[in-house]
């Protein structure tokens, strides 16, 4: 594992910690899209089906369990915690997330490495992860007030896949020279979807102003 991959994983983990901290400490999930969070549960469950059949390293196993566990915890908080659920911006979280599920699944049926249940679902999870942020970005655009923790959460979540792209470049040129098109293309699309957000996030950070996305 190279430093970019580790930095990517840590950034991903950190984004989740920031989100859980916001929810737990402020007892509020305002500005957070439940649809995006539910998509992440599906992403992790379909990607880590191999949790008990394929052992890569203790690090991988622990991280997989953490990602599955925390994604369930976030959804539980937003749906069932009696205080937190009242802060959910239900009327603004309007993105039809099931419209993402079907195309990603069809694409995974068409473009995959091996036609096996495990591999098609793994491929599906990569396609779905690439677009899972869309409901969250739409919600942010509709929010007048984006609090710092929410802004930071989305920033670190986007930065994680960007660091993975650097990891892939490093692996390809300096380690094994193997092309992994499915994660690469998905990861590039995923990172590109954040471009607009990154622009306004960095702008607001430079000007010491509150983050606001143009509608």
């Amino acid at each position: 594992m190279n430093l970019f991959r580790l930095a990517g994983d840590m950034t991903h983990l950190f984004s989740i910690i920031v989100l859980l901290l916001k929810i737990h400490a402020t007892k509020s999930c305002s500005g957070i899209s439940l649809k995006t969070q539910e998509l992440y549960v599906i992403v992790f469950l379909t990607r880590y089906l191999d949790l008990f059949t394929r052992f890569v390293s203790l690090y991988n196993t622990v991280m997989k369990i953490v990602f599955i566990g925390t994604s369930f915890a976030i959804v539980w908080y937003m749906r069932y915690h009696k205080v937190v659920k009242q802060t959910y911006n239900k009327d603004e979280d309007t993105f039809k997330h099931y419209f993402l599920l079907l195309p990603c699944f069809v694409l995974a049926l068409l473009l995959h490495n091996e036609f096996t249940t495990m591999d098609v679902l793994w491929t599906f999870s990569l396609y779905l992860e690439a677009v899972a942020i869309l409901p969250q970005l739409v919600l942010l655009q509709q929010s007048r007030n984006i609090d710092n923790l929410t802004g930071n959460y989305v920033f670190f979540l986007g930065a994680y896949r960007g660091l993975y792209v650097l990891n892939w470049i490093y692996r390809y040129f300096l380690q094994d020279h193997r092309a992994r098109w499915i994660p690469w293309i998905s990861g590039l699309v995923q990172t590109a979807l954040y471009a607009d957000f990154f622009y306004y996030y960095i702008l607001s950070w430079k000007k010491h102003e509150k983050l606001k996305l143009p509608a």
Binding site: D9, R54, V56, W122, Y164, D176, R178, R180
Partner: peptide, 10 residues
């Protein structure tokens, strides 16, 4: 093997 497809990543 797993490294070939990228399944050794998260």
């Amino acid at each position: 093997d797993d490294g070939f497809s990228g399944k050794d990543e998260l």
